[in-house]
């Protein structure tokens, strides 16, 4: 691989997000994280759903796959499982991941494929001009809604936890440096990492703005919070960790925590696949069929 500079990770394509959009910060953090971890662009793939956030892959010089609304996780998991040596990042908005893609969000947690999923949460459907997203609170009325939101809010952290995500964190779009560190940590985590990013939409979300967030945010790790859950933790210790997680995951309003909430050691789906494919991941689907098929052997059970 060539020696690459930070700028090499940035594609020539100009982002078409609104001025002041939180997406710019996430893009920069992602670019810096990939550069600092020296990830080979040709061994890295970024997948996205549909929406403003989903344009992210076009702005990075790696394999970029801009998929379908809500389907980013299955596509990304398919690629990662077929070539487990790739660095895989999936990105998408709250509508993409927790609205139309909620079933995939949950199922991905059950598998624990080794990759990072970044959810850009702005509480609105921006590209279709500001309808309520699945993370907008009940009764909240952003400026493009004719009436207060009649549907309740999904807590992405709790849902990720219930689904089995093994690394759960929250970042803030305007805290590029902090976000970069979280992305690096999520990429280095073995298993499915979920990074919830608070990403104010300056155009459609006039409730949860940069100004609203700034005084409320704090870092969990500054307060001695330890997210690490080693394998084989005694049940009472695990209960304590879970209680601690829940307490922080629901904290919203006066104080909003950022940082790593949960970091557990759980076998990945790749490791579980070994029960079926003993040579995996050394021999993986993207390599193609390695030996001629033993058709003769397979036909034995059908012989007359």
């Amino acid at each position: 691989m060539l020696e690459l500079k930070l700028a090499d990770y940035k594609a020539e394509k100009q982002p078409d997000w609104c001025p002041g959009c939180g997406d710019y910060g996430i893009l920069s953090a992602l670019q810096m994280a990939l550069f600092e971890l020296k990830r080979d662009p040709s061994q890295t793939a970024i997948f996205s759903g549909i929406g403003c956030s989903a344009k992210t892959p076009h702005y990075l010089n790696v394999y970029g796959v801009h998929t379908l609304h809500g389907r980013v996780l299955p596509v990304a998991q398919g690629a990662k499982l077929a070539n487990p040596h790739l660095t895989v990042v999936a990105v998408g908005g709250d509508g993409d991941g927790l609205g139309i893609g909620a079933g995939h969000f949950v199922a991905a947690g059950r598998r624990n494929v080794d990759m990072l999923y970044i959810l850009y949460d702005n509480e609105v459907y921006g590209l279709t001009k500001g309808q309520a997203g699945p993370t907008l609170g009940l009764g909240e009325k952003t400026k493009s809604l004719p009436k207060p939101n009649p549907q309740g809010r999904i807590n992405p952290l709790l849902l990720a936890f219930a689904s089995g995500y093994t690394w759960i964190a929250r970042g803030y779009a305007y805290d590029v440096k902090g976000l970069k560190e979280l992305i690096k940590e999520g990429l280095s985590h073995k298993g499915l990492a979920f990074l919830h990013v608070l990403q104010p939409c300056p155009t459609y979300n006039d409730l949860h703005t940069k100004e609203w967030f700034a005084p409320r945010l704090y870092r969990l790790q500054d307060e001695g919070y330890d997210p690490h859950v080693p394998e084989g933790l005694p049940p009472e210790e695990l209960d304590r960790k879970m209680a601690q997680f829940q307490e922080k995951a629901v904290e919203w309003g006066e104080r909003i925590p950022l940082g790593v909430f949960w970091q557990a050691e759980v076998p990945t789906f790749e490791e579980r696949l070994k029960a079926y494919l003993p040579r995996y991941p050394e021999v993986y689907p993207a390599l193609g069929q390695q030996e001629p098929l033993d058709l003769e052997g397979l036909l034995k059970e059908f012989a007359l």
Binding site: V65, L68, R71, P74, V75, G78, A79, A82, N83, L86
Partner: peptide, 14 residues
């Protein structure tokens, strides 16, 4: 998911 996961795998050459 079944169809899109297969697509993801195919993109890597599988």
């Amino acid at each position: 998911a079944a169809v899109t996961m297969a697509v993801g795998a195919a993109l890597t050459g599988a």
